[in-house]
Amino acid sequence: MKRFYRTMASFHKELLVAQLAVKRASILTKKISDEIAAKTTGGISKTDKSPVTIGDFAAQAIVINSILKNFPSDEVVGEEDSDLIRQTPGLGQNILEHIQNVQNEDKFSSDVLGELSSIDSVCSTIDKGDSKGGSSGRIWALDPIDGTKGFLRGDQFAVCLALIVDGEVQLGVIGCPNLLVDLSNPSGKRGGLFSAIRGRGSYYQNLFEEVKPLDDQRRIFLNNKVSFAEAKVCEGVEKGHSSHELQALIKEDLNIVSKSLNLDSQVKYCALARGDAEIYLRLPKDVNYQEKIWDHAAGNVLITEAEGVVSDIYGNSLDFGKGRTLQSQGIVASSKTLHADIIKTIKKIIGENGEELQKYC
């Protein structure tokens, strides 16, 4: 029988640790992103040729260290390992210096989060993100920098953390250092901290202010009163992340005419939850690709607790208890009033069971 973890009191400490850790990691990654963008240089290449920076490693070390200090029996599904750090002269020292700088800046949180003081401790902590996931126990899903390309160009990225208990996402926290407080004011303040607890709702506050109790944060909701004629779609900036051909056909069939909102990473989930848009489609570019749980766990609970819906492209709920991937195809997040018709349109185009999906991949 699954254990019962649903009350607010059960997750009070988990939420505080997650918020403080995500905030500390967001402050660090924001500074590194600004430095990289100013120099117009990229990151280091991992063996899979995807870009990675000291920010990914530093943020993963900070967050995992914070979790395991407080919940030493928990597991973490993280994106990175320390192999590249150990193989690259000087990289470990660079990462440690950035971590120590943010620890000094954020001293008041160290009683809760702890501190890292050596390259070996940084590497060993990063490697504790090696959980295989699954449907039993307490497992945290961490994306230390979601939206690496946005991070590298000084645009949108996010630090994303979620707690999965017995296969179900129970809380999520997302830090968005570059997200405008008001999208209609491009010169306005930036930075959002988004939090959700299952059964308690979704909340928002400025990332760079002191973390407040949930009751003092802004409760956020999707807009469930908007029609397709008025609805905005959140689209990824990177063309390789979603089938834009299929997306265009879906929008045409549903008579969606509003200009799309282009954002990197799980920032799209945050924009939906805050009411900046009503639809997010992540449509397969490869019929065999399976989404990683760290790319969607925090966003999933944020949307559902903001009174929205998240599913795969066939309308099935996402299963975060099958390992490090979702083992399903695509993502559809939207307001409750629009979701069923979106799924109906997708099936009309690709077939009830995706018989025509390959055409658009």
Rank of each mutant, 00 (worst) to 15 (best):
F4Y: 14
F11Q: 10
F11T: 07
F11V: 03
H12C: 02
H12L: 13
L20N: 05
A21C: 05
A21Y: 02
S26W: 02
L28I: 09
I32Y: 08
A37V: 06
A37P: 06
A38P: 00
T40C: 12
T47A: 14
P51C: 00
T53H: 04
I54R: 07
Q60R: 11
I62V: 15
I62M: 12
I64V: 14
N65M: 00
L68I: 13
F71Q: 06
S73R: 14
E75N: 13
V77A: 02
D81A: 08
R86T: 10
L91Y: 09
Q103G: 05
D106E: 15
S109G: 08
S109I: 02
E115W: 00
S118R: 05
T125H: 04
K128N: 11
G134K: 08
S135W: 00
S135L: 08
S136I: 15
G137K: 06
R138Y: 06
W140K: 07
P144W: 11
F151E: 03
L152C: 06
V159W: 04
V159D: 01
C160S: 15
A162W: 06
E168K: 15
Q170P: 00
I174P: 02
I174F: 05
P177I: 05
P186C: 09
K189R: 15
G191P: 05
L193M: 11
F194G: 01
S195V: 09
A196C: 03
G199S: 04
S202I: 10
Y203C: 07
Y204T: 00
K212Q: 14
L214D: 03
Q217P: 00
I220T: 06
L222M: 12
L222S: 01
A229V: 01
K232Y: 08
V233Y: 01
V237E: 12
E238H: 12
K239M: 09
K239S: 14
G240C: 02
G240V: 04
L246G: 09
A248E: 12
A248H: 07
K251Q: 15
E252P: 00
I256Y: 01
K259F: 04
K259Q: 13
E291H: 07
W294C: 06
A297H: 07
I303W: 02
A306L: 06
S311V: 09
K322S: 11
R324M: 04
I331D: 00
T337D: 12
D341M: 11
N353G: 01
E355G: 10
E356S: 13
K359V: 03
K359M: 08
